[in-house]
Each structure stands twice: as structure tokens, then as C-alpha cells.
Simulated assay, not measured.
Amino acid sequence: MGNNLQATGELSPGHDLNGYIQTVNSIPVLSVEEERELGTRLRENGDISAARRLVMSHLRFVVHIARSYSGYGLPQADLVQEGNVGLMKAVKRFDPTQGVRLVSFAVHWIKAEIHEYVLRNWRIVKVATTKAQRKLFFNLRSAKKRLAWLNNNEVDAIAKDLDVKPHVVREMEGRLSSTDAGFDGFANDDDDQAYLAPANYLEDMRANPAQQLEDEDYEQDATRRLSDAMAKLDDRARDILQQRWLSDSKATLHELADTYGVSAERIRQLEKSAMKKVRDMMGEESLAFAS
């Protein structure tokens, strides 16, 4: 349905936002009866023309909602476009038999799409990922009564009003007050500011690429040699080693004794002999599980 509606062409907030707003405000608002009839046609018959009229008549409401998000520094046209996506999703799910006007039903979908757009684009790094953080992101600034940092009483009051933990309020306040920083600094930084680039103080001096490669090669080689050695054992010896040392739930000597109908001491001897064979086949390297 979305592609058919977007194909109307002339209605695009990205080309001329003021002209777009004038156009959508001139589209007549539907009466209750008209809305119910169009909703029924869409729901029962998949009538795309009915869906188009439902969307077109509610575009003005999307503009009104999008204006309330202008404080985030994002293009108004983009906010409107995202809200329109939410409106189309609402129209697709609208059930006129429920006795609720489309505008009331669509508010949730419109805001949801705008919220996702704001969270994705407000900063390079997404500042709100959990439900509590998202709630704070869209409510904390309006909840603050002054520009200074929140005191403990204010934090507790906001946390109670928004039903979140106080430490989450503090964390989100810090995120909202911070700014993006280039990992390698910015192109216009002078030499005196170069040391502030995160790349100069976030370096992990413990990392040694040559040592890491050597360790990985050693582990891969040891794994290969162990696999080759295990393959040369007889079935019983291989099974004993696997169940005693290579299984997540390691078997006891008595459990294996019951399985093979021998004594626990005999299983211990077989295990010791198998370990020696594997060690000899792998060379002088000691097995981790044999230490």
C-alpha cells in the first residue's frame, strides 16, 4: 500500500515544505461517516483509493505532530516524512468497527516512527536503547525546570514521575549534555588540541598484533594435532577421553565403568594410557586437560 500512496508525486515535504503544508491543509477533513465508509472499503475489499483518501485527509495532523519534535535539530521535512510512514501503517491497521477515529488511532504509529528517526539520527552513537532510556530521552528536557544539572531531589522526583531508577535519570542527563567527538579528532583541530582526540588516550597498549597472531596459530595447530591424535585411538579409549575431558558434562570413572562393564580402576588405567598415547602423538607438548 505504501508505494501506491507515495506514488502520488506532488505531495513530498522534501521539495518545498511550506508548499507541502499549504497543500495538505487544503485537503478536506473527512466526516465520521466518510471515514467509516472508506475504512470499511479498505478493510473488506483492499480498496487502495479508499486508503489514499484516508491518508491524504490526515496528512495535516502529521505536520502538527512533527512540529513538536523541532527541538532536536533534525530537518522538519524528514520528521514529516517519517510521520507519514507511521500514518500509512496506521491506515493499514485501522478497524472502523471499533468506534475510534483514525486520528486517535494513528497518533501512536506516527509518533513511533518519528521517535525511531530521532533516536537514529540525533547523534552518531544511539543515546537511548532501553525502554527506560527512550522514555527519558523524550521527557527529560521538558521535565527539567532549569538549565543547571539536576540536584538529588529533582532526580528523585523525575524518576518517580517517569517510573525509572534515579541512576538512569543521571545517566541520560549526562548523555543529553554530551557532544559527539571524532575518534581521530576533527579536521580543523590545531596541534594544541590534537591530544584531546580519543585515539590518543583510548589506545590499548596491551594489544600486540604479532603476539595475538602467534597465539591464534598455536591454538589452531594444537587443536588440529589433538584431533589427529584422537582419531588414531580405538573407539573405547577415544570415548573415555571425550567423556572425561572434552564433554560439557564430564562423566565419572564409575559412570564409565558401568557403561563398559569393568571396574573404575580399569577405566582410570585406560584413561591414563590413552592420554600418554595422545601426548606422544602430539609431541612433547602437554595437554591442557592432562595437567
Rank of each mutant, 00 (worst) to 15 (best):
S177C: 11
V63C: 15
R170C: 08
D190C: 02
R52H: 14
M172S: 07
A77H: 15
N3P: 00
L140G: 03
R120G: 01
L59Y: 11
A132V: 01
N200W: 10
V155I: 10
L38Q: 12
V91P: 06
A106L: 04
I240T: 04
D180Q: 03
E116D: 13
V155S: 02
A132K: 04
N3A: 08
E214Y: 03
V85Q: 10
L270G: 15
E10R: 03
D47P: 07
E113S: 14
R236W: 00
L79Y: 07
A90N: 05
V278Y: 02
P166Y: 04
N153T: 07
D235S: 11
E214V: 07
K131R: 15
M275K: 14
L11Q: 05
A197L: 02
L5K: 04
V80W: 02
E214R: 10
Q242Y: 14
N121P: 01
T8I: 15
V164E: 13
E34D: 07
A210D: 10
L42F: 14
V103C: 06
L59G: 07
F94N: 06
N151Q: 07
L287P: 09
G14I: 00
Q22K: 09
A112S: 12
A199H: 04
S31H: 05
V125P: 01
S70E: 12
H254L: 11
A112H: 11
S142G: 08
Y20A: 05
V32T: 09
A288Y: 13
Y218S: 14
R67S: 15
A210K: 09
V29F: 09
P75E: 08
E173G: 02
D248E: 13
F137V: 03
R146Y: 09
D217H: 08
G283F: 03
I124K: 13
E255C: 01
V32G: 01
D161N: 13
V100D: 10
Y69F: 14
H64A: 05
I27D: 12
R43M: 09
V32W: 09
S178Q: 03
D184P: 00
A199K: 11
A77F: 08
A143I: 00
T23M: 00
A157E: 11
A194Y: 04
G73M: 07
A290V: 15
D16R: 01
L38W: 14
M205T: 08
T97C: 00
R120S: 08
E219T: 06
E113N: 12
S26T: 01
V164F: 13
K272M: 07
L196T: 05
N200M: 08
N121V: 00
R175C: 06
G99A: 13
D190T: 08
E44I: 07
L54A: 02
V118M: 03
V62F: 03
K92I: 01
G14D: 09
S57I: 06
L150Q: 02
A210I: 11
Y69K: 10
Y72N: 08
K126R: 15
D217Q: 12
R123T: 02
